[in-house]
Design a protein around this nucleic acid. Structure first.
Lengths: 125, 125
DNA sequence: ATATGTACCATGTGTACGTCTGGTACATAT
DNA sequence: ATATGTACCAGACGTACACATGGTACATAT
């Protein structure tokens, strides 16, 4: 399993890491149940900050591509192959686009849409 | 009809102007059909840039509170009283909030939601 | 002691946007 | 000539955020 992080690439490092892990699962370079390097270990190997790797791992776990088991380490999720094609962010883009189109058709300014968006996002709720 | 613009107020000047015109219509300080000062005239009186007043007027016209008739000037819309309570931006907040809640419930990060939002907003379409 | 994932504190850099400003130009009609 | 609304060009300033970095601390279990 080869991971290459290009710091010149405009794609964020954590995103490169997420993408490459998913690709490795698809290409069966890593199998469900396989152990992954620890956050600190991988950060050291790739010469990244551990926080950057931790961010990628947390996203991979949310998408159920990996499983973290605390002190026992991190492993490829048993159902990783069926999950590595799903991206939560992409899944919902459709609904958001539909809403934004409706707002624009109603005559709302892009500026107003952005303001409304920011206000809703900043609510602690 | 009194218009007061407070430059120290965090509320944008154009927004103050829009709000105060709508309030004047509600309180019947100005009647449907009444002529409003021209953009340049009002900008001069309030010591604002004409672009700022023009922005407020364009929003007021979109909300059908005023009517601009080119060289003939600007007038209070005949149906202003029924329109001065409607705010396009507010009208649609509900749908947007619903969509955002759905995204969060699906596990999307606030960061991911913002990125998806910006990408959709920046599409020329 | 060592290692795991996780949580919190913080800083710096770059980008994007809102707001307001300024100038110029146009077609309209008086 | 004068005045109307409108459109385009541009810049400055402040704010908000994504990204990446740094450190410290915790409970967990070996």
């Amino acid at each position: 399993m080869q991971i290459q992080i290009d710091m010149e690439n405009p794609e964020p490092m954590y995103a490169q890491l997420v993408r490459q892990v998913k690709e490795a699962v698809k290409q069966k370079a890593i199998q469900p149940g396989d152990a992954l390097p620890s956050i600190r270990q991988l950060a050291n190997d790739l010469e990244l900050n551990s926080k950057t790797v931790a961010k990628a791992y947390s996203l991979l776990e949310r998408d159920q591509v990996i499983q973290t088991r605390g002190y026992r380490g991190t492993f490829v999720h048993p159902e990783a192959r069926s999950h590595c094609n799903t991206d939560v962010a992409t899944e919902i883009r459709g609904a958001l686009k539909k809403t934004l189109d409706a707002m624009r058709n109603a005559g709302a300014t892009d500026s107003e849409i952005r303001i409304a968006f920011n206000e809703l996002m900043n609510q602690t709720r």
